[in-house]
């Protein structure tokens, strides 16, 4: 799994990518960022959710991966996430989880 520097914003990641990281990893970082952004409509920008939605910023990657797996399998009941989780591959969920884990939760 790729690891993001904790608290790094995406411009930082892009800068890192352009600097010295292998091209494939740079691509993964952008892909992770783009995939995680598909969650933001409900879970907030960079995972900083409001209201009744679950915040994802700063949540451990393993926890997100396990929860999504439980949504997929039906182990974890949900109103909607069981349907959405099945739209993403396990590899995509790993990228998304790594991205959110690296985000600094905002107040």
């Amino acid at each position: 799994m790729i690891r993001f520097p904790r608290g790094a914003r995406t411009t930082t990641l892009a800068l890192l990518a352009g600097l010295a990281l292998p091209a494939a990893m740079a691509q993964d970082m952008l892909l992770a960022r783009n995939l995680a952004a598909t969650c933001a409509n409900c879970h907030g920008t960079n995972g900083n959710a409001r209201g009744d939605m679950k915040p994802l910023a700063g949540v451990a990657a393993g926890k997100i991966i396990a929860l999504v797996a439980d949504y997929k399998s039906g182990e974890q009941p949900a109103s909607i996430m069981h349907q959405i989780a099945k739209g993403y591959t396990d590899e995509q969920i790993k990228l998304v989880a790594a991205y959110f884990a690296a985000q600094q939760p905002q107040k």
């Binding site: 409509n41 879970h43 920008t45 009744d52």
Partner: peptide, 17 residues
């Protein structure tokens, strides 16, 4: 009604996003 609350939170989150 749970999704009633989610619907309003959805709106808050997407407007902010």
């Amino acid at each position: 009604q749970i999704e009633g609350r989610y619907a309003l939170s959805w709106a808050d989150n997407i407007w902010a996003d």
